[in-house]
């Protein structure tokens, strides 16, 4: 293929699905997975652009996004475990004490 449009389009679709997942699911784990899906679709766009311009920088970004994702998952899952211990649930709607 001489164009990256299909990849970009797929990336946009996946990203939107991630957004919808993020906004409609209640379970913290599911929300997290939706975020991963969004990150991943962004990565796909990065790699596609890197391919288009023939430069490595897009790939470097993906590299860092992955590292950030790993860090985020480590902390996020630790949070979920802690919350689950006290609430016996991973439902984010029950975690609404922080309100004005």
């Amino acid at each position: 293929m001489n164009t990256i449009s299909p990849y970009i389009l797929l990336s946009a679709v996946l990203f939107t699905m991630g957004v919808i997942g993020f906004l409609t699911r209640r379970n913290a784990i599911m929300i997290f997975m939706s975020v991963e899906l969004m990150l991943n679709s962004a990565n796909l766009a990065f790699v596609a652009f890197a391919h288009q311009w023939g430069q490595l920088d897009g790939q470097m970004f993906v590299f860092f996004v992955m590292a950030v994702a790993a860090a985020e998952v480590a902390v996020g899952l630790a949070l979920i475990v802690t919350v689950f211990r006290t609430k016996q649930s991973a439902n984010v709607d029950e975690l609404n004490q922080l309100k004005g």
């Binding site: 990256i4 449009s5 970009i8 389009l9 946009a12 990203f15 939107t16 766009a45 391919h51 288009q52």
Partner: peptide, 21 residues
């Protein structure tokens, strides 16, 4: 958002050909 993203991406970048080298 999907419509926007698709529009922006495809109209702005998608058409450019892949770098040959």
């Amino acid at each position: 958002l999907l419509i926007q993203a698709a529009y922006v991406f495809v109209s702005r970048f998608g058409a450019s050909p892949v770098a040959p080298d």
